[in-house]
Structures are given as C-alpha cells and as structure tokens.
Amino acid sequence: MTQAHSVILKIDGLTKLHGQFKALNSISFNINRGEIFGLLGPNGAGKSTLLSILAGSSKPHTGTACFDGMQIQPNNLKLRARIGLVPQDFAFYEDLTAKENLVFFGNLYGLQGTLLTKKVNEILEIIGLDDGKANQYSKYFSGGMKRRLNLGIALVHSPEVLMLDEPTVGVDPQSRNRIFEAIKTINATGTTIIYTTHYMEEAESLCNRIAILDHGEIIACDTLQNLLSLTKTTINFSIIENDQTKAGLLQQKLPTLKQATLQGSYSLASHNNPTPEIINLLVNEKIQIISMQLDSPNLEKVFLSLTGRHLRD
C-alpha cells in the first residue's frame, strides 16, 4: 500500500470563519486509513468546527477536506453513510431503549432485517449494554452507560471513519476503560478513529498520531514519540551541605546545569535522559546525593509548552 493510498482524510488549507473570528486558519494535514488520530487543543481551538466539517455538517470558507479522494460537501449524503460521529453531548432518544435507539439509527442508515439485528447485538456487546440493559429506557441509564450508547449509535452503520468528540467526559474509570476497549476493538477491524479529547493520557494510550490545534491552527502533528521529543527530560537533585563547595565543579562539567532556589538543589534538562551522566559525575567526584527526581517528558508537558499555560475560555 503506497502512502497516497493510505490517506483516508486529506485536509488542505481549511479555513472557517465565525463572523470575524477565524475558527480554523488554513489548516492542512492527513489522516491515514486505520489509524487512531488524536486531535488535541484547548477550549475554542477549533476541534469541534473541524469535526463538523469532516462530518459534512458544515462547509469551510476556503480549502478542502477529502474523504478517500472525494471532497466532503454538506450535500453529499452518500459520504455521510461512511462516517460516524460521536457528538460531545448525548444524542439519543431517552424514551427509547438502547436497542430501539440502535435499531432506529441503523434503519436510517439503511440496515434492515437480520443484518440489522446482528449488527445491533454486536454493538450492544461492544459497548457493554448487551444484557438486560439493552431493553431499558435510556433515560434511566448512568452517565457512563449513556456515553457508551452515544458511541454505539455512531457505530451501528459500520463507518469507515469514526469521529469522537470528547467521548469520555464525566464518566467513571470503568466506563472509560470500556470505551477505550470498544475503540480499540473497532479500530482493529480497520476503522479509522479521530479522537478529540482534553485528557492527555487518553491520547497517549490510544493514538498513533496526534495533532495539536490552537487558535485554529495546527501547531504540531506527529507521532507520540516525536511529539514527546519536543520537550526535554529534566533531572532534579540535591546534594548535602558539605559538598556544596563542589558546586563549581558541577557547573564546570555540566554547563546547562541550573541551580535551584533552594541551596544545594540543581536541575538539568536535556532531550536525552541525563541521569547516567549526572550519576557518573557525582560518583566520580564523591558528592553525596540527598535526593534525585527524574521528570520525564509527557504529552501534557508538550501540550502546555506548545499552547501556553494561560487560561482559555
């Protein structure tokens, strides 16, 4: 399979305006077939707007989004059948049972008869609502069950691309875990996943590639490993008071070493893990260590370093 064929979604120069506000500012990236693609960004970054365009519910002002070579247009109804969208808010009929909701939406997508029954039962099992809960009115469901049903409805027509807009908001760890399992199961069947979340650990554990969106622009888009390499590993250590005379020696050997506010405490940041180098130096110079803490890079650090720490509304 060539690179060109593996691209299922090609986003090229998308711009979307909400009045004068640029919700998306000429963004371009590709999503490969079969991958779990994470879409991270602070509130108001443009994630939901992007998903709306990709789902065919909204039209960009400029640029194109192509699904499997076909341009996504709001009036292209056939394309909609190949896409599944799990909205951030619950979107099902509370006075219908879980099964009835799945059957209804399955019917809308043209599924009928035994195929529909089989698919509904399969989905109910994937989302963990296959026992007696399937025939309960969904208004009596817990938050986690509602989240899972919300996911299940988007799966019933076997979409090639499944877009999830923060699917784990407000759910307990058990339900979150079940949702992860469901996503992995679906992805294992070849479904491409676009996963939008605020939870970095979710993106870290699920996504093959991640794009970070801020102020309507893609500020990073790469594999997790490559994104993590954007920040440095920091080692913090303290030495005993008697050995502080040797601080000058440390500074000489490690020019990037920084002295912390607390006397006798130092930190060193590096793209490569500096722990062996420091330990060797301290041992060789017979400097006694009080404490040592390794601060490894993670996605949250990458995210904060790229998007800044100021509050977003």
Binding site: L77, R80, I153
Partner: peptide, 14 residues
C-alpha cells in the same frame, strides 16, 4: 435539545 436532531441531519437521510 437532546442532540438527536443534529444526528438526523448528519445522517444520509435526505
């Protein structure tokens, strides 16, 4: 309000 209308609109139904 319960979001199902948007779901209907994003379905392939004309």
């Amino acid at each position: 309000r319960q979001g199902t209308f948007n779901r209907l609109l994003s379905s392939p139904v004309s």
